[in-house]
Design a protein around this nucleic acid. Sequence first.
DNA 1: CTTTTGTATTCTGTATGCAGCATTTTCTGT
DNA 2: ACAGAAAATGCTGCATACAGAATACAAAAG
Lengths: 228, 228
Amino acid sequence: MNEITSLERRPDGGPGPIRRTALHDTLVSHLRDMIIEGDLSPGTRLHEGQLGEQLGVSRTPLREAIKYLASEGLVELVPSRGAIVKRFSAKDVHDMLTVLRTLEELAGKLACEAASDAGIAEVRALHDEMVARYKAGDRLQYYKLNQQIHSAIAQLAANAALADMHAILQTRLKRIRFIGHEGPEKWAAAVAEHEEMIVALEARDKARLSEVLGRHLMNAWERVRAAV
Amino acid sequence: MNEITSLERRPDGGPGPIRRTALHDTLVSHLRDMIIEGDLSPGTRLHEGQLGEQLGVSRTPLREAIKYLASEGLVELVPSRGAIVKRFSAKDVHDMLTVLRTLEELAGKLACEAASDAGIAEVRALHDEMVARYKAGDRLQYYKLNQQIHSAIAQLAANAALADMHAILQTRLKRIRFIGHEGPEKWAAAVAEHEEMIVALEARDKARLSEVLGRHLMNAWERVRAAV
DNA sequence: CTTTTGTATTCTGTATGCAGCATTTTCTGT
DNA sequence: ACAGAAAATGCTGCATACAGAATACAAAAG
């Protein structure tokens, strides 16, 4: 992941409209990925000139993207010295997981009431796919589906504010979880918890789903604490 | 609040360094205030040229500030058409209060464990001042102290992520609460709840503080729903 | 040899200019 | 007079240019 990452843009100024999405959004998610995947490690200064050249973008939109990420809490703005990738201490991670736990417990309760059958079925599909990836030992895809499932549950709650807060915390934690490699037995336990979650969701059992989600996130701390 | 608001900057280029804080931060909080206080009402387009001229700032830093606020959820970016002040439906407000309630319940519990005596004393001082403002019928100062108290409790929890999420939601809700003018009896009830809160906090009674905070925010919906 | 000060370079912060897209106005044909 | 098309206007999106701050380096003094 350490080679120079560049945004796909027409190198020549050809007329064909390649990029459909606004540059701002592209840049934001690209930088996010670079931070999450460790291309830009914590403490690294985001060099506007150099970074802009790497990505083939001028400083202006880059600066705007950085400000956006600063508001999200992924980077920190130091006056007159630009931006650096935010560093999270072990306590920070623990704190984030504490809040995330509370949010997901709430999401679980609300989802049981508000979710459509179709929505639940989609989560089940994600879950089955995740289990398949687990059995195949495909950690990366497992990890991504895992995140998607948690996001999906947060969305089933049909509460935009909740989904927003959840997304922010999950993004901040992605980098940590991305590097956290738990052993086989802990991994199996995590999958088992997920299985419980899905069952509770399909039964629309508020109390149970909420309890499992809470337990799952408490255990998540045990799984990642070594990596922090 | 509707006259042209301009940032204080040396009109002449005099050598004396007037503005201590970075322009970015100034702009962000200034725009926030304009939105919260209704200078920029929901749905209003943020006109870069015009707004920049009003504030005496060029478009570049203004755009950066707008992107920052977009990430905070106060404004919405529409591709090729700039930014508009975000509109919140009644359901949105209700949803935000639901999440805020959960967060404050958590904050209450954590604060009882983590807060220093000095920290609690500060909140008590804010509370006493607020009650004085209430008795004086000074709604604006009452309102501001009220917000400060909730923020202070969120901070006593000594959990940065929690404080962050709380701050975001509180900011989004400020505009609503700012216009919500409840009647005398509801106002009195709110003050009574605050009194309970302080007592529970000073006693470090987790369960009780959490319960009061939850009730307080449930009632908050009743108080503002008419204004939405 | 260490410390301090002056200087040069590099990077951020802000302004301005130009091109493209949306919208509105105007013109033309019926 | 009205509908549709074409031009014109105004704004955003991005790039570039300039000014000021911070750091690094070097030279000089203790």
